[in-house]
Design a protein around this nucleic acid. Structure first.
Lengths: 223, 223
DNA sequence: GTCACCGTCGTACCCCGGTACTACCCCGGG
DNA sequence: CCCGGGGTAGTACCGGGGTACGACGGTGAC
């Protein structure tokens, strides 16, 4: 019997996971936590086999909670659930010692098989994340492959660093500085620094013109 | 027996709702849809009493789907679920003819009582949204009838006047309020008034999102 | 070793953008 | 005739955006 601790700040989300897990005869829900601190405490008490960990939560977030759980030496495995597949948190989570990542819009069956895999000591990564993870860690590998495909960007964006291009992309999604900082795990001051450099390099006067430029250069494309 | 159509792009979220609803003996799930288009089509087929509508979905979003369902004349009620208590979504949804709004992190019991209220013809709004909605709608509240479907442009821009569309177009050129006022021979205060109404009508949070919308709806096109 | 670049974070400051009102004019329709 | 919608304009306020600094760790080039 695999025992699972559900960690998510949304009660309905927890409810869904609970119903799914309880419907399986080889799994049982050890408990539910609504934030990272609760998750750490309950893991120490209950010693579940698997912690189903949401990332974005008020207070202690899922990454830090994962780090503490892993550091505790407990043999509990942490399976992280990300909402978006572009979530930068995934990388942080790997470093934090998580045993896997799945996207929240995965099919229930995929989630179940992921939990079973993690419980048995394997690691799982959502297919849509695998590519990105491989890319991000490519340089830490033996590197026998070909050089990464050049970004091939528009001239006006040529002087931007990768990070700046990334920031510009999310600016093109309409995110505020505060949202960018939250979702990319940055201080707002850092975001402002990036945005400022983007404006300086591209000649855009403000973020509106920067976003327009992003569309015109097809860095982002209309929905 | 209240029949419910569940609309959400996340299978797990749908699963949770389904389990919750099926556990009630006065409710049954008529079906599930993963995006707005499916929702519209399935509503026309199944005529559920209530559509549980997520907002953020790939393709046709929940607001537009709501608008079409309401416009169809079907007596189906739409209950919108927002992930964040960002009132711009709620605002937009109200215009679209939704019968209620709840935040996704509501307790399951609150969700159930909300569905029952909507099914019986009442309207529900999450407490955290009520205040803002009342403020925003204080003077235009009596509108209970369905507004005539305005044609011509993209649905999300349909309610804009010609002048507002014009302003939005030049916003899409990256002009500041001051520039718009100068080149259109207007007072800056007038420009602000127009911009404010554009944001309110389209549900955009700021001019950046408005410009993105202008691109997405092809009101303006990349250079 | 040194240096340049990148990414990160902070503080302080100013201004534009956005909101919340109120108000007036013009026009077409009931 | 009055009423409503659209367009115009104003004031007051505040928060986020943008600027201008300075600072520090890591990394790759020379």
């Amino acid at each position: 019997m695999t025992t699972v601790l559900i960690v998510d700040d949304q009660p309905m989300q927890r409810f869904g996971f609970r119903m799914l897990l309880e419907s399986q005869d080889d799994m049982t829900v050890a408990g539910e936590a609504g934030n990272g601190s609760e998750a750490v405490r309950m893991t120490a008490e209950l010693h579940p086999d698997v912690v189903l960990m949401d990332i974005r939560m008020p207070g202690l977030d899922g990454i830090e909670a994962t780090r503490r759980i892993v550091a505790s030496g407990d043999r509990t495995r942490v399976l992280i659930l990300t909402t978006f597949d572009l979530d930068e948190y995934a990388y942080d989570g790997l470093r934090a010692g998580a045993s896997g990542f799945l996207i929240k819009d995965a099919l229930p069956e995929e989630l179940l098989s992921g939990i079973r895999a993690v419980a048995s000591g394997d690691a799982v990564v959502a297919p849509s994340l695998t590519r990105r993870l491989l890319d991000a860690y490519a340089d830490h590998l033996p590197a026998a492959g070909s050089a990464p495909a050049a970004p091939a960007t528009h001239p006006r964006l040529a002087s931007l660093t990768d990070r700046e291009r990334e920031i510009l992309t999310v600016m093109g999604q309409g995110w505020t500085n505060a949202e960018i900082s939250a979702r990319l795990h940055l201080a707002e001051s850092t975001v402002k620094t990036h945005v400022g450099r983007i404006l300086a390099k591209t000649g855009a006067r403000d973020r509106v013109q920067a976003v327009i430029l992003a569309y015109d250069t097809k860095l982002v494309t209309p929905a």
